[in-house]
């Protein structure tokens, strides 16, 4: 019994200690993000990597999600003669939930893993120590550009995902389900409010920050060669994905629970 309690206690302390370490890591990075020097080349490189090179995977995910959503909601709503709500369901689902969550998860898999692997490899091959000996702060050089780029680029990706998702629903709605294109677009705009899009973009910014934070944190703290880098990569993706789902609920609660 005591052994079990001790194990629970150790686990709890470990969990709280990890939260504290991550919070300190984030606070240190944020502190450095407002103090020069700024490494603009690294920032632009990260923007291209996160924003531009993630476009294909996010676009494909969004367009097919929109198509499936239109199809599923049509067949479901047909049971109580509410097929007319398909366009509204597609646009609200995409802007509020599916756009940011799916883009966040895709970017976590693509970018979070890459960040953890790159920074982790730099850690275990002394490249981060080399930065310090060259009078370059590793937080400013490696972490800050990634965090800022992640926070700024994911909303742009989600904006594209929203448009493509709605377009996917429109294609299925008009080409397969027989909706009139003008009527479909009118229903799309009819119930869409600025808050729907803004909440999605806020979620995207938070998710972008979390993905970059987890990638940098796990990479920066990786130890023990190739195995350590592998573990850091896995941890970065898993923790970013879980945090995306948790913060998705929290932000939804903040915006829509009345």
């Amino acid at each position: 019994m005591l052994d079990m309690l001790a194990a629970v206690g150790r686990g709890t302390f470990g969990f709280l200690s990890t939260i504290g370490t991550v919070a300190l890591f984030a606070a240190t990075a944020l502190g450095h993000s407002v103090r020069p020097p700024f490494y603009w080349r690294n920032f632009i490189r990260q923007c291209i990597d996160i924003g531009y090179f993630s476009l294909p995977v996010v676009a494909l995910t969004a367009i097919f999600s929109g198509m499936v959503l239109a199809l599923q909601s049509y067949t479901g709503f047909a049971r109580f003669s509410a097929e007319g709500a398909v366009a509204t369901v597609v646009v609200l689902s995409m802007t509020r939930e599916l756009g940011p969550v799916l883009a966040g998860l895709m970017v976590a898999g693509r970018i979070g893993a890459a960040m953890a692997a790159e920074i982790g490899t730099m850690r275990v091959t002394d490249q981060i120590d080399a930065l310090t000996t060259l009078s370059t702060n590793p937080f400013k050089y490696l972490v800050v550009p990634r965090l800022v780029a992640g926070t700024l680029m994911l909303p742009l990706l989600v904006l594209v995902a929203d448009i493509l998702g709605v377009m996917g629903g429109f294609l299925v709605g008009t080409a397969k389900l027989g909706f009139n294109s003008g009527a479909y677009m009118a229903r799309t705009w009819e119930y869409l409010e600025a808050e729907d899009v803004v909440s999605g973009l806020v979620k995207a910014a938070v998710f972008g920050f979390l993905v970059a934070l987890m990638g940098c944190y796990h990479g920066y703290r990786s130890r023990g060669g190739a195995q350590g880098v592998g573990a850091a990569t896995t941890n970065a993706v898993v923790s970013a994905s879980i945090l995306i789902l948790i913060f998705n609920y929290i932000i939804t609660e903040l915006f829509f629970a009345r």
Binding site: E118, T121, M122, T125, D126, Q127, D129, A130, T132, T133, L134, S135, N137
Partner: peptide, 24 residues
């Protein structure tokens, strides 16, 4: 302070065991 230490490090060079070259 960290800034003062960076200024001191600016007058130092280090050859790491495995090179530690930035591979990117």
């Amino acid at each position: 302070s960290r800034e003062e230490r960076e200024a001191v490090n600016a007058h130092m060079g280090m050859l790491f065991q495995a090179g530690a070259l930035f591979d990117s």
